[in-house]
């Protein structure tokens, strides 16, 4: 600023007058810019918390958001009749645009899309949770056994885990889907049976660690059975690593279910969000640009998976905060 003024002083008066006015303008402009930046910074620090040091606080907030969203979807899944305006099988005029009667329009066979969406929550979440339960259970048992007994059993089980780990999941499920009759139970079983490896590995490493703790050693010394030690000493201390893993397994199972259903391997009689997407694709929803048909299930899958993942991260974060160690 000073330099510019000094430069102006050397010029003719007329020019300098013009210059002065422009400078004043630019000063005003600059001050407004500064003011804006300051306001933006204030806003950012107050509302967005981009500061990395406040990561933990943010996580808690996101976690709460996740919990809220998840509760919402859970209620949808548990009592869909409360939210759905019609039965999902009731038929109206097909291919209708959103209106007050049908908030999200109707699909190719005249089903109300909003009702389908609400009822789909139950199926999508059931697939997610059921297969996560299976995979967590298998992972827990294999991890506990190989971590506790070590030696040959450990090597055998971990070798088996590695073999399962390198099986390409989605292609295998596609092949299975081609041979088996498409059914939601088979989908749950296959997803559950093929996604326990990372859980098994984490449980094993944690078990190896806990096994060396004094209370496990003294329990062994006092003659408690291995089963008793695993159930009452090791398992309670594993829960905090298992819970976030369970949530993430649920989220990834829901994604897998959606993608498999989209590929046409789902159970048509049980309309999940993935199957809705699949129908929107194959029955002309995308070509007709009926966004109210294909967008809502996509958004629901994303939000639901996100809420579950956020809860999982929240568990991990809380454990880190409490114990000052990485949950894994």
């Amino acid at each position: 600023m000073m330099q510019e003024e000094a430069y102006i002083g050397e010029n003719t008066t007329q020019e300098s007058k013009i210059r002065k006015s422009t400078i004043q303008e630019s000063i005003i402009q600059e001050s407004t810019i500064q003011e804006n930046t300051r306001q933006w910074n204030d806003f950012r620090s107050l509302n967005l918390d981009l500061d990395i040091r406040k990561y933990g606080k943010n996580l808690k907030r996101f976690n709460r958001g996740g919990l809220f969203l998840f509760t919402f979807f859970l209620i949808l899944a548990l009592i869909p009749a409360l939210f759905a305006p019609y039965s999902p099988t009731e038929r109206f005029i097909p291919y209708e645009a959103p209106s007050t009667a049908h908030l999200l329009g109707t699909n190719d066979i005249g089903n109300d899309i909003l009702s389908e969406l609400v009822y789909g929550a139950r199926i999508s979440m059931m697939v997610g949770f059921a297969s996560a339960c299976i995979s967590t259970l298998i992972g827990l048992m294999i991890g506990l056994l190989s971590g506790y007994f070590r030696g040959t059993l450990d090597e055998l089980l971990m070798g088996f885990t590695d073999v399962v780990l390198i099986i390409p999941k989605i292609p295998l499920i596609i092949i299975l889907g081609a041979f088996l009759r498409p059914s939601i139970w088979i989908l749950i079983l296959v997803l559950g049976l093929l996604s326990w490896e990372s859980i098994a590995r984490i449980v094993r490493s944690k078990t190896l660690q806990i096994r060396e703790a004094g209370y496990v050693k003294s329990a062994r010394c006092m003659g408690f059975s291995p089963f008793h030690i695993m159930v009452s000493d090791i398992f309670p201390n594993l829960v905090h690593v298992l819970l976030p893993k369970f949530m993430l397994a649920t989220a990834s199972a829901m994604i897998s279910e959606a993608s498999l259903s989209f590929l046409g391997l789902g159970d048509i009689s049980m309309k999940s969000w993935g199957i809705m997407l699949s129908f929107a694709f194959s029955r002309g929803g995308f070509i007709r640009e009926m966004w109210w048909w294909y967008l809502p299930p996509g958004v629901c899958i994303t939000l639901c998976v996100m809420s579950i993942a956020l809860i999982g991260f929240g568990f991990e974060g809380r454990e880190k905060e409490k114990r000052g160690v990485d949950a894994e």
Partner: peptide, 13 residues
């Protein structure tokens, strides 16, 4: 029987 060094992990937390 055996008694261990670290009392903080002598019991299931």
């Amino acid at each position: 029987q055996m008694m261990f060094q670290d009392p903080t992990d002598a019991f299931n937390p």
